[in-house]
């Protein structure tokens, strides 16, 4: 059949339905715990710098993936919670392939003073605007409501 749209709902045929109960508790790790403990109290990010190649990781890591060496405590630095948009997209589809209630602008943001980027939702009134190179800063939950998860970063603007 040469149609672009095809029947893809197998539930209309005889079948057995099952699901996987797969809930996990993910440990943040040593570096992650420090990062989120810091984020709970401060409006900046923690990063770590490789002592050999000087690459700055944000989120911070305990080891450098390029040099395969430890990153010592003294090589940790505080960096501003802002950066520059490298690439961005407007997502209109949800995980089940249906339309999102409202489109979401999502970007890869090069974080200032680091060699790392971070995914972030961009809050903008004009989702079609070219955001390339735009400076954005993280908007965090009010300090009292922070819990030490990525959800403390509400969005970038």
């Amino acid at each position: 059949m040469t149609f672009l749209e095809k029947q893809s709902d197998p539930t209309s045929f005889m079948h057995w339905r099952g699901d996987m109960q797969a809930d996990y508790l993910y440990t943040n790790g040593v570096a992650g715990n420090r990062f989120f403990a810091h984020l709970k109290k401060k409006d900046t990010f923690l990063a770590s710098r490789c002592p050999q190649c000087k690459k700055v990781f944000m989120p911070p890591r305990m080891f450098c993936e390029d040099c395969f060496c430890d990153i010592p405590d003294k090589a940790w630095i505080e960096v501003p919670a802002r950066g520059t948009v490298r690439v961005w997209t407007v997502a209109t589809i949800n995980a089940h392939g249906k339309k999102l209630k409202e489109p979401k602008v999502i970007a890869l943001i090069d974080i200032d003073k680091t060699d790392s980027a971070m995914l972030g939702i961009i809050k903008t009134k004009n989702p079609d605007k070219d955001l390339f190179g735009q400076k954005v800063k993280a908007v965090l939950r009010p300090k009292k409501k922070r819990e030490g998860t990525l959800k403390d970063i509400l969005y970038f603007e």
Partner: peptide, 23 residues
């Protein structure tokens, strides 16, 4: 207990292709 948000739906993971294609 942690990580709750008011969001109601997840963005489809293919958004990463949107980012890479733009690049």
């Amino acid at each position: 207990l942690i990580g709750s948000s008011k969001e109601t739906e997840r963005i489809h993971p293919y958004f990463l292709a949107g980012l890479e294609m733009q690049h």
